[in-house]
Amino acid sequence: MKKEKIIEGLLKFSALVTILTTVGILYVLLSESISFFSEVSIWEFITDKEWTPLFVNKHFGIMPLVMGTLLTTFIAVAVALPIGITIAIYLSEYAPKKFKKIVKPLLEILAAVPTVVYGFFALMVVTPFLQSFIPGMSGFNSLSAGIVMGIMIIPYVSSLSEDALSAVPKSLRNASYGMGATRLQTAFKVMVPAASSGIIVSVILAFSRAIGETMIVAIAAGQQPRLTANPLVPVETITAYIVQVSLGDVAHGTLEYKTIFAAGITLFIFTFILNNISFYIRKKFKEQYD
């Protein structure tokens, strides 16, 4: 009986460790950010159009970093969404079962490639390739970083969307075929709408993954905070900035040092909101067929 108690205690402990870690991270993020915002007003943080905390003439406007993050993320989602959903529809509606069994795990390998390899690939292969027909494109730019990040998140969209499509009752597919609908009509008029909540969740998850992605953008998108929607010039994302400061020689406890926590909490708010939206959608549409 004593053994049981010890095991139970260990299990409880491991559960607690993960919760405590999250609480700890939140605590550090919050306390450092609060101390940052006691020196820089939130208003300035949101409205200033420049981010130059490491220069002599300091500006603390987060918008250039947010813009860089959103720009690379939107490019990534624009790549991953159509490709991922096309793959999902092909696998669930057209492909033979055996083929699906082999291809789906193969696709998931895409998400398992180390991101530093992707970053390198974007910088050394994709950018020179794009430069060959987009003259004036910078060596660092959000376009190639975004495209490569899009390739990385394809399996998030394709696998989860495929799961959602496969979860739609077979009887609906039969009903549609029975009416004389083609495979394509059945896929787009019945299956995709019926699986829409799962597909939306997959896209949000991919979005959230792209927002938090660090290595690819740090390597290939540049490190110049710039408020721009131009995908051809260097930008800096929130994550890339945090890397830059963490690796640099900024003194512990200074205002410059605290900027990474302010940037970090901004990032946290973004992903937190996205995760909650996906949680809400999943919950709301869960009982649709029960």
Binding site: P169, S171, L172, N174, A175, S176, G178, M179, G180, A181, Q185, K189, V190, P193, A194, Q288, Y289
Partner: peptide, 24 residues
Amino acid sequence: GMVFQKPNPFPKSIFENVAYGLKI
């Protein structure tokens, strides 16, 4: 036309269900 063992309407409105074949 085919009618199945278990009712299998689409998760759409009544109108859209009945109009499905016509729209196809």
